[in-house]
């Protein structure tokens, strides 16, 4: 009895949570008349909106850009954060604690506050309209470094010492022992990084002036602004196209993500 009540409540809240996406999915198959009549489900389902999206803006080009940017940024972030975390966890040097605190304290500064200096840097480097501008600034991530360092810290010191006795270099120890040991954290951080960069809007808009490297989020905005009366069916078809890759990623990584999140909670 209690269980069925619980599941009813869960189902309702899931529906409420998912309503925007479900409705967007539904709208993407509607004709303009259906939308104007505020239908919940399309009376006459059509793929016209998808066809129009692919015709009106280079959505596949945008998706490709987004994919390149998100993958590169995620990979770069994993590499840079894990190497930094490794140093902070294993290699002692004078002032390590102070440097680490400084590193972490950048978490306190909102991204928007650093946007203008970052923009000026990118501009002076001549990276406008370039993938570099969209990826490199996200490589060094205090959050990622912190997350990985905390996990690396749980690697028993004896493993480090055993590997030294066996003749492993620092780097061998890093990729042969530490990386497999902290695999779940890498997956967690990877998914987090991919979703964050995939969903970026403001920064790509700032550092791009034309379509060559623009990401899909900006492409969506273009669908909306072109006409006086927005064709919502068209926009929603675009939205669905953009959501799909992230959903696939989440579904694939969900198990690992859960493991990673609960692991952090227990320790």
């Amino acid at each position: 009895m209690r269980k069925s009540l619980l599941y009813t409540l869960l189902t309702i809240s899931a529906l409420v949570m998912f309503f925007p996406i479900l409705y967007a999915f539904s709208v993407s198959f509607m004709t303009s008349e259906d939308i104007a009549n505020r239908q919940i489900v399309p009376t006459n389902p059509t793929l016209a909106n998808y066809y129009d999206v692919l015709q009106s803006v280079p959505i596949l080009h945008y998706l490709m850009n987004s994919f390149i940017v998100a993958s590169t940024a995620t990979l770069g972030m994993l590499i840079v954060s894990s190497l930094a975390a490794f140093i902070f966890a294993f290699i002692p040097f004078r002032g390590r604690q102070a440097v680490f605190l400084l590193f972490i304290s950048t978490l306190l500064i909102p991204w928007e506050a650093t946007m203008i200096p970052n923009f000026l840097t990118i501009q002076s480097l001549g990276w406008m309209n370039n993938y570099l501008a969209l990826t490199v600034p996200f490589f060094a991530l205090a959050f990622g470094t912190f997350l990985l360092r905390q996990h690396f810290k749980t690697v028993p010191m004896e493993l480090y010492e055993a590997s030294r006795v066996e003749g492993l270099s620092h780097f061998q120890f890093f990729y042969k022992v530490v990386v497999p040991y902290a695999k779940t954290s890498f997956v967690t951080l990877g998914i987090f990084g991919f979703l964050t960069t995939w969903n970026m809007y403001l920064w790509p808009l700032l550092v791009t002036t034309n379509d060559t490297v623009r990401t899909v989020q900006i492409g969506l905005r273009r669908l909306q602004a072109d006409e006086v009366a927005t064709n919502w069916g068209l926009v929603m078809a675009g939205v669905i196209l953009v959501i799909v890759p992230t959903l696939i990623l989440l579904a694939a990584g969900q198990k690992q993500l859960q493991k990673g999140l609960t692991k952090g909670a227990v320790k």
Binding site: P156, E158, L159, E161, A162, R164, V165, E166, G167, L168, K176, V177, P180, Y181, K183
Partner: peptide, 27 residues
């Protein structure tokens, strides 16, 4: 340590958790 031609057994054994017994031995 690796140049001293010695092996070491630790109190908590220091086995690599992601490797099988065989891989641990051959590591």
């Amino acid at each position: 340590p690796s140049k001293r031609e010695l092996s070491m057994v630790f109190q908590n054994y220091a086995l690599y958790p992601h490797l099988t017994v065989e891989e641990n031995i051959l590591f």
